[in-house]
């Protein structure tokens, strides 16, 4: 099984299931034959009505026949998985859908404590797909209540303070990047963060293959040339061939000092022992990030061999 943890949701999926679409609050997993699992989630305030959400689902998919079902109408493995989720506080209502030859099994979930509302569905091609769906369902986790959010995607793992909101992300061959933003006020706003105003931007980057990228250059020179938030030329970089770090003022002036808008930057980049990659974490912004917090974040950023999970 491979672990995925994305923006507050975690689950473990069979090795062949890979993310084929990633949204801020959504995941679509597919295997070689097509989509197998889709998740959408949100945080809702106040009460949550399963009936209302399932009715909305029915209305939004007129081509499919969607119906809510009780525990006696779903496979026993699936019912067992929902029972296990109920132990962690997640309430669930299952549904079935059918559209021509295709059918699916899913559930609407809600955690009253955290406000997480999640819609998950599995594409069932044959009866043999029901057991893996139940196994994956049982691994679903709600991380939104914690002070630290775990992130695991495409062989990268990190632990990020929950007050940092996901800003942008991209996973292109050779370069993976996730950016988080925390405003100076510290709260997680409901709107997408735009990175404007006082705050701090946290950047995670993974470059590969390191053996090629660093063939004719040093890690320091490469970081200055290639990182999204490279260390300013005036800022000294400490470290050796396998790890460099820097910390200081990136943009400053008398006016910025007077307005308390001095941009500080901290960064660390290192080559991994296994995996042939360069990992880099930078924190840049007008709101300072404690050194211990930055060290913890850097320490948590690592490569995860998929088979080892």
């Amino acid at each position: 099984m491979v672990d995925f943890a994305w923006n507050g949701i975690g689950l473990a999926a069979p090795l062949g299931w890979e993310p084929s679409a990633i949204e801020r609050d959504g995941l679509l997993l597919a295997d070689g034959a097509g989509p197998v699992c889709e998740l959408k989630w949100n945080r809702v305030q106040g009460s949550f009505s399963f009936d209302k959400h399932l009715k909305r689902l029915t209305k939004g998919n007129r081509s499919a026949e969607v119906r809510a079902v009780g525990p006696d109408e779903v496979p026993s493995d699936w019912a067992g998985a929902l029972d296990r989720l109920a132990e962690s506080g997640l309430r669930a209502r299952s549904f079935l859908w059918r559209a021509g030859e295709n059918r699916g099994l899913g559930a609407a979930l809600h955690h009253p404590g955290t406000g997480l509302a999640c819609l998950i569905q599995f594409f069932i091609r044959s009866a043999a797909d029901e057991a893996p769906a139940a196994r994956v369902m049982a691994t679903l986790r709600d991380h939104t209540a914690g002070k630290i959010l775990p992130w695991t995607m495409f062989g990268l793992a990190a632990r990020v303070p929950a007050d940092f909101a996901l800003d942008t992300f991209s996973f292109r061959p050779g370069h993976y990047r996730m950016t988080f933003w925390r405003s100076a006020s510290g709260g997680r706003s409901g709107r997408a963060p735009v990175g404007k105003g006082p705050g701090v931007r946290l950047d995670f980057e993974r470059f590969a293959p390191a053996s090629v990228l660093l063939k004719r250059t040093t890690l320091e020179a490469w970081c200055r040339d290639r990182l999204a938030h490279a260390p300013p030329t005036v800022l000294p970089v400490e470290g050796g061939p396998g790890l460099v770090s820097w910390c200081g003022e990136a943009r400053t002036s008398l006016l910025r000092r007077a307005l308390r808008r001095v941009v500080r930057t901290c960064g660390r980049a290192w080559t991994t022992d296994a995996g042939n990659a360069v990992l880099a974490v930078t924190a840049t912004g007008t709101a300072p990030l404690a050194e211990s917090a930055f060290n913890d974040i850097c320490g948590s950023f690592t490569l995860v061999p998929e088979e080892a999970v």
């Binding site: 061959p173 293959p209 053996s211 995996g275 042939n276």
Partner: peptide, 15 residues
């Protein structure tokens, strides 16, 4: 050869 992920290698090579 380059210790990258299989899916990543597939995308890079096909591109």
């Amino acid at each position: 050869a380059y210790e990258v992920q299989p899916r990543e290698a597939e995308l890079a090579v096909t591109a």
